[in-house]
Simulated assay, not measured.
Amino acid sequence: MSALPNMGDPNGTPVVHGGDLSAVRQRFPDAPSPWLDLSTGINPMPYPVPDLPPETWSRLPTREQNDALIAAAARRYGVRDPATIVAAPGTQALIQAIPRLVPRSRVAVVGPTYEEHQVCWRRQGHDVAVVSSLDEAGDAEVVVLVNPDNPTGRLVPVEALPPRPRLLVVDEAFIDLSPSEASLAGRLPPRTVVLRSFGKTYGLAGLRLGFAVANPDLAFSLRDELGPWAVSGPALEIGRTALADNAWLDAASRRLQADRHQLDEILKDAGFTIVGGTSLFCLAEHPEASSMIDRLGRGGLHVRHFPHWPSRMRFGLPGDATAFARLRTALDTR
């Protein structure tokens, strides 16, 4: 199992994530406000939050609320047995919990990718290697694949997945807008856990809601690890409503595809090469990426850049015509 360089320090330096404007504001104190944050892969046009009964906020969540959310998730993700679905306060909570439930193992994370995977496995004492492909996972007992990948958007067909190790973890946080056959959730193989995010496609990351689809024994252990009332009452109600709203998801999918096309054209006009992405973000390359980051920062726009890929930048989608125009103006080098 050949390894790439360590992409994160689980014992010290925190992983850098999109959506944190504090450091970039300090770097560009004279930038105009409000900042336009394009550093995340979150739908900028969120699901309209319904009015909730006051007791949703004042009472502990009920089993009936949880069961209704799980039923809605099962229908949305094509899962036959709702007992295999675990609701959590965000997929990050599941990424942290799973390594605590597995005996110390040799773990291969296909990457570079979302760095919390390797950090959380290593924090629990596992032997972690970041490998560039599934073929390089070798004799790893646990294989972690983000599919589609963040930030490249690479999508591995399910038929290309390797024979099962002790555990295969497939993070499908960005798969909602892909064809349904791209997901493993509805045809879960043995020794596999699939993670699904709610907040990204529905634009409600602050709600903190995610799901694991796992074989019954692991699903039971995950529920036990997360403890009672893991998901808040408002998240249960909003998640149930949104996951059942097919019309909204269809309309959002069409709009996001059109917006992604518009984003690509703006970046190409500015000299970028599109190298990957999903319906929610674009990975682009520029020979003068560092100067482009500075140009955007001075204009009050925040994007993701990668120390291990210095020529690449990840752009989330602008939310409206004004935001698109602001990005185009900031990138204009004439």
Rank of each mutant, 00 (worst) to 15 (best):
V128K: 09
L317G: 01
H261C: 10
R298N: 10
G300Q: 04
A71G: 09
F306C: 05
Y202N: 00
T40Y: 01
V146G: 01
P29M: 04
E172Q: 09
P228I: 09
A205K: 12
V79H: 05
T322S: 10
G12P: 03
P34H: 06
S291D: 15
P54R: 06
Y77D: 00
A323H: 07
Q26K: 12
D259G: 08
L167E: 06
T152P: 00
V231A: 00
D30Q: 06
L134F: 13
N66G: 11
G233V: 02
R123M: 07
Q262L: 12
L331H: 11
G277W: 00
D20H: 15
G206D: 12
D135C: 07
Q96H: 12
R27Q: 14
N66M: 13
V213F: 06
G233K: 03
D245M: 09
T84F: 04
A182R: 10
Q26C: 08
D332G: 06
T333K: 10
E265R: 15
P162K: 12
K268W: 11
G300R: 00
K200W: 11
D20F: 15
L177Y: 02
M1A: 15
V15S: 06
G41N: 06
F211P: 08
T322F: 03
T84G: 10
A129Q: 03
A205S: 14
A83N: 13
A71N: 11
P82T: 12
T40C: 07
L188T: 04
A214Y: 01
P34M: 11
E181T: 10
T241W: 08
H17E: 15
S33E: 15
M45H: 14
T84D: 10
P34I: 04
G138H: 03
S253C: 11
A23E: 12
A212L: 08
R208N: 04
V128Y: 03
A140V: 09
D176S: 14
V119A: 14
D320P: 08
D30M: 12
V86Y: 00
D294T: 14
G319P: 08
A321I: 11
M292P: 00
R314N: 09
D135L: 13
A140H: 05
W57T: 11
D149Y: 03
V144K: 02
V109E: 00
I293Q: 07
R59H: 14
L167N: 05
I98V: 15
Y114Q: 10
N6P: 05
A214F: 04
A247T: 12
